[in-house]
Amino acid sequence: MSEDYTRALVETLREAFEREGLDRWIAYAPSRVPLRVRPTVFTSPDELDNLIFNGFCVQNLAGYLKHHPEGRVGVLVKGCDRRAINVLIQEKQVSRENLFLAGIPCPGMLSRTRLLEEFPGLQSDQVEESGETVTVRTPDGPRTLSRDDMLLPTCRSCHHRIPEDVELLLGPPPFAAPEAEMDFSAEVGPIGEMPRNQRAALFADELSRCILCYACRNICPLCYCDTCFTDVNQPAWMTPALEPGNIFFYHVNRMMHMAGRCVACGSCEWVCPEHIPLRLLYGKITADVAELFSYEAGLDATLPQPLSHFSEDDPDEHIG
């Protein structure tokens, strides 16, 4: 069933590639790595035979626009890719007219970590997605799971699966999780209610595993500075020594950079080799920006961003 969908998808995109005279198309191709697909820059319509779409297409493709700025580019976008592109447009990193966007109603992406936890050694070809379920072929026979249970945490709380303002809105895949009921920031409230010491301990435990590999920064579709504050060394804000001060400094300042910009695509969280639940951090920033400035990132490319902007009536509870 999903093979038929992919075949139809390839033909639609190939037709658009040729008709629009695009220079390249950014989408996904299979890989030998278990439960992971490879983001791929296709440079000719023929190469699209290799294109796939399934529940492992977790990488946010908007990020690839920063590496491939020239020419007219087609991008296969899910809800979060589309919203990230809006932020890039707001920040004048890409021009809308150079993009041809094919929107795919996102079925919600699967958590590789959850699946591997449940089925150690699982390979991509053992997983069959259909409707609201995921079926895993095991040596003891197939096991069917609810897709919703196997989603990435950020996908479970996504309310923007259908990309808006696209040149081509594709039909929904024959597999999808039900509408999310939870909010991205749902877990933030209870943490905020915890006693301060417990919160401090929670984040000390989680963040102390950080190895400063900067994968969270590099995978972020919205991190595009030529020189990151982490790399400024004359003088240095922080040093690369793997110590709590540097780790905290990095995360707090990166979070501040994401305030009003983060589209909750969850890339930083799934990419983390240490499984640090970064949604708990970025969810906080997102919740505060929503509450204080009634703003949600990536919905409208024509609005000014909340932190490069102000209102005379802004809250001033923090001014002593």
């Binding site: 905020g192 984040f203 707090v252 305030a259 505060d288």
Partner: peptide
Amino acid sequence: NLVARRKFIVLKRLLAYLGIE
């Protein structure tokens, strides 16, 4: 100072959330 006010309220809440007094 108005731009700063926005930035600081987000930072202040964030640091408190992370457990800084």
